[in-house]
């Protein structure tokens, strides 16, 4: 066998993609989460694209600044204030999630647990806010088949998109809770890797990112 082939084989055996190891040092768990996120992004992408089409083709689209004006305990109208607050809370929870991941990297169990707890808190508040938002929207007469502000596609796509996102937040909260319990019991410490926290973190950032898109396209624009 010629020398070149041997050299090449040597190079291959040491290379990142040469087999026998994970390219970029990313474990299969993390790959799976990334790939799932890409796939799920297409689900949301399809919803948002459909929403965009409804909006462009509808003769009149309600002005969201006139629709989402409720804020608990405030007697006057505060357009978009509530949803801006929700968005802020969710972004904060993304921030605490990042802190939890970095704490877990330092094997700082107490801080990891603390920031995970804060993330769960933020997520729960967001979800409760969304319940309020839905309650108010329904109270004002919106349903899947109609609403007082015009085309029923408005309320239907609102319920569909925020509902689908809310389901994601809910499952994220469940995942976070499980992860937090595992951190508390020292599962990751024993394993020697806090990767689980990082993976849930990826999912949580994704859910937040989707919300930013929903917020931009549905509420702001």
């Amino acid at each position: 066998m010629n020398h070149d082939a041997v050299l090449e084989q040597k190079k291959i055996m040491e290379s990142e993609w040469g087999g026998g190891k994970a390219p970029f040092g990313v474990s299969w768990r993390k790959y799976m989460m990334w790939i799932f996120i890409v796939s799920d992004a297409f689900t949301f992408g399809a919803f948002l694209a459909a929403y965009g089409l409804f909006r462009v083709t509808s003769e009149a689209w309600p002005n969201t600044y006139e629709v989402f004006t409720a804020f608990p305990l405030i007697p006057f109208e505060a357009p978009m204030l509530f949803v801006a607050m929700m968005t802020f809370i969710l972004i904060c929870s993304s921030f605490t999630m990042a802190l939890a991941v970095s704490a877990s990297y330092k094997n700082d169990r107490a801080n990891a647990l603390k920031f995970l707890g804060l993330t769960i808190l933020g997520g729960s508040i967001f979800l409760l806010c969304q319940v309020y938002e839905w309650y108010h929207f329904i109270h004002d007469g919106a349903s899947l088949t109609g609403n007082p502000w015009g085309t029923p596609l408005f309320s239907a796509s609102f319920f569909m998109i925020t509902g689908f996102h809310g389901l994601h937040v809910l499952s994220g909260l469940i995942l976070l809770t499980i992860t937090a319990l595992k951190v508390k019991r020292g599962f990751y410490e024993r394993r020697g890797s806090y990767e689980g926290v990082e993976i849930v973190g990826l999912y949580w950032h994704f859910v937040d990112l989707v919300w930013v898109f929903v917020f931009t396209f549905f509420y702001l624009l």
Binding site: Q9, I12, M13, S15, W17, G18, G19, G20, A22, P23, V26, S27, W28, Y31, M32, I35, F36, S39
Partner: peptide
């Protein structure tokens, strides 16, 4: 799909390049 893709990326034996 998750399994197929990740397995192909991560589980190839030594010397099995793409």
């Amino acid at each position: 799909s998750l399994n197929y893709i990740v397995t192909v990326l991560n589980m190839r034996t030594k010397g099995m390049t793409m």
